[in-house]
């Protein structure tokens, strides 16, 4: 365990253009491989989920953020620490539901969509759907089931990009029988 403290936690950065264009190449490929936008959306979500499941460990190791007390704190950590660390942006957290179980992330800019314009025949494509999968996958690994979807998207002509997140339940850890 003592070795861990020596681990390098420097967070290397790179120019966002390679990232943006690579993501674009991926979405283009999916659009060629699948029949319709719904299938592409699903595939993007699935890939995002796989990323999220792996990303959470990287995140916890680098950020040294502890356990969140409530969903509001989770929201803040996602917006101010995680988005900042990985995408270099800080979305604002707003539109809380009265019960405090649902909120919106408003993205002023979204590095995934630089240079992007949706052609008319892809009007149901949720271009950045990968992000929803990432958030869902990462939170699932810290025992939170959430529902994540795009409520608004500048690519479809909205003024801002809004990701809506809803808390569903805590996932109880299922220890294998006899493993107490």
């Amino acid at each position: 365990m003592s070795r861990q403290s020596n681990r390098t936690t420097d967070n290397k950065k790179m120019n966002s253009e390679l990232f943006t264009l690579t993501y674009g190449a991926l979405v283009t490929q999916l659009c060629k491989d699948y029949e319709n936008d719904e299938e592409v959306n699903k595939q993007l979500d699935k890939m995002g989920y796989n990323i999220g499941v792996r990303l959470i460990e990287d995140f916890l190791a680098r950020s040294s953020v502890g356990r969140c007390q409530d969903f509001r704190e989770t929201a803040d950590v996602i917006a101010k620490v995680a988005f900042k660390m990985y995408l270099g942006i800080t979305p604002s957290v707003t539109n809380w539901s009265p019960a405090g179980d649902e909120f919106s992330l408003i993205l002023e800019s979204n590095p995934l969509v630089d240079f992007v314009e949706l052609p008319d025949n892809h009007n149901t494509l949720i271009y950045s759907n990968l992000l929803c999968g990432v958030l869902r996958g990462a939170l699932e690994m810290v025992q939170m089931a959430v529902d994540v979807r795009f409520a608004q998207d500048t690519l479809r002509g909205d003024n801002v990009t809004e990701i809506r997140m809803k808390f569903i339940k805590r996932i109880e850890e299922n220890l294998p029988a006899g493993d107490e």
């Binding site: 790179m14 966002s16 990985y86």
Partner: peptide
């Protein structure tokens, strides 16, 4: 999009984010 400047607004993302994305691409 046609109104956007061509000059680079220098923005950065983390290498981990790229590595994870690229890994998904390769697996796909």
């Amino acid at each position: 999009i046609l109104e956007m400047p061509l000059a680079r607004v220098k923005t950065e993302v983390s290498v981990s984010a790229f590595a994870l994305l690229f890994s998904e691409m390769v697996q796909y």
